[in-house]
C-alpha cells in the first residue's frame, strides 16, 4: 500500500507534491482504469497519491470581461451548470461518458491525461485556451497546444499541478460540434469535430476548426483559418476543395479496435465539408 494524502488547501497540495513522485488524483476516472488490476486485486498505485478533487481553490469558476477561468478540478457536471462556460464546451461535455462519470471526472484530468480521444481538448484548442501550472510559489501559463506534447504526454513537471484553464471570451454565431462514438453515451470518440465561426452579413470574421481522435494530438491549423477569415461566403464556397485538401494532409488517423483509418479520415473531411457548407455559410 502506498501513502495517500488529502491536503486541506492548494498550498498544502503543492507542498506535498514538491516532495516528489506523487500521483495527482482528481476524479480518478482515468487513473482507476489505467491502474486497475484484474480479478479483484487493489489498483496498482506505485507512488504516493495526492487527492485533489475536493480542493475548493481548484473547483472555482470565475468570469471577467476578458476571460473565463475554470478550476482544474471542476467536474463535468459543474461545468454544465455554470452559465459563463462557453456553449460549445458544454455541448462537448454533455456528450462525455455518463452522468456518474461526469459527476467525478474533471476537466483538468481530461487535459493532463492527454489522450488523443480526450474530448475537451479539440474544443479547448479551438477556443484558444491556456493552462496555468503551479509549483512552489511559481506559476507558468501555456497555451493548450504547447502543454500537450503527444499521446499521453504533457510538459507538466513532476512537481507541477494544473490549477486553472483560461478561456478568452470570443463571439461566434455558428457552431458545429460532432462526436462520433460507437454508441449514444459512454463511448470513446472515434472522431470529434469542432467548428466555430462568426459570420457578419456575408463575411466570415472569425473561424476555428479542430479535429479530435484522428491524429496523435488535436488537429488545428491557424494558417488555414487565417486564409478563411475575412473572406465573404462566395469566396469561401469556392475555396472548399482547397480547404479540404489542406486538412486532408494534416489528418493522420490510425486503425484500431474502434475504427479504421479510412473511416476516420473520410468522415473528418465530411464533417468539415458539412460545417463549411451547411453550418457556416
Amino acid at each position: 500500500m502506498v501513502d495517500t494524502f488529502k491536503p486541506q488547501s492548494l498550498q498544502e497540495a503543492v507542498d506535498v507534491l514538491s516532495d516528489k513522485g506523487a500521483i495527482l488524483f482528481a476524479g480518478g476516472t482515468d487513473l482507476m482504469v489505467q491502474r486497475r488490476r484484474r480479478g479483484g486485486l487493489i489498483p496498482d498505485f506505485d507512488r504516493p497519491v495526492i487527492l485533489i478533487g475536493h480542493l475548493k481553490e481548484l473547483k472555482e469558476i470565475s468570469n471577467s470581461t476578458r476571460e473565463i477561468r475554470i478550476g482544474s478540478c471542476c467536474t463535468y457536471t459543474a461545468l454544465l451548470s455554470h452559465k459563463a462556460v462557453p456553449e460549445i464546451l458544454k455541448t462537448c461535455v454533455s456528450q462525455i461518458a455518463s452522468p456518474g462519470i461526469r459527476n467525478r471526472g474533471t476537466i483538468g484530468g481530461n487535459i493532463c491525461n492527454a489522450s488523443p480521444a480526450g474530448d475537451t481538448l479539440p474544443v479547448l484548442y479551438a477556443l484558444d485556451a491556456s493552462v496555468i501550472l503551479a509549483r512552489d510559489n511559481k506559476e507558468r501559463v501555456l497555451p493548450i497546444e504547447k502543454f500537450i506534447k503527444g499521446p499521453g504526454t504533457t510538459v507538466l513537471e513532476a512537481d507541477e499541478l494544473l490549477t486553472r484553464i483560461i478561456i478568452p471570451h470570443s463571439s461566434f454565431n455558428k457552431f458545429f460540434y460532432k462526436k462520433v462514438g460507437t454508441r449514444a453515451y459512454n463511448a470513446l470518440s472515434k472522431i470529434s469535430f469542432t467548428g466555430l465561426a462568426l459570420k457578419k452579413l456575408r463575411a466570415v470574421e472569425d473561424v476555428r476548426i479542430a479535429f479530435g481522435a484522428v491524429s496523435p494530438t488535436v488537429v488545428r491549423s491557424k494558417d488555414i483559418e487565417a486564409q478563411i477569415r475575412g473572406k465573404d461566403i462566395d469566396a469561401i464556397q469556392k475555396m472548399i476543395p482547397e480547404i479540404l485538401s489542406h486538412y486532408s494532409k494534416l489528418i493522420d488517423p490510425i486503425s484500431d479496435q474502434r475504427s479504421n483509418r479510412r473511416y476516420r479520415k473520410t468522415v473528418s473531411l465530411n464533417l468539415l465539408n458539412s460545417f463549411l457548407k451547411n453550418y457556416m455559410l
Binding site: R183, Y185, Q257
Partner: peptide, 27 residues
C-alpha cells in the same frame, strides 16, 4: 450494429467493455 468483435491472428481485438460496446438504455 455496434457489437463488433474481430479476431486477428487468433487474438480478439475487443478485449474489454471499453472496446466491445453493447447498447445502453439510450441507444
Amino acid at each position: 450494429t455496434i457489437e463488433v468483435m474481430e479476431s486477428r491472428e487468433g487474438g480478439l481485438m475487443q478485449r474489454s467493455m471499453t472496446d466491445y460496446i453493447i447498447a445502453s438504455s439510450v441507444d
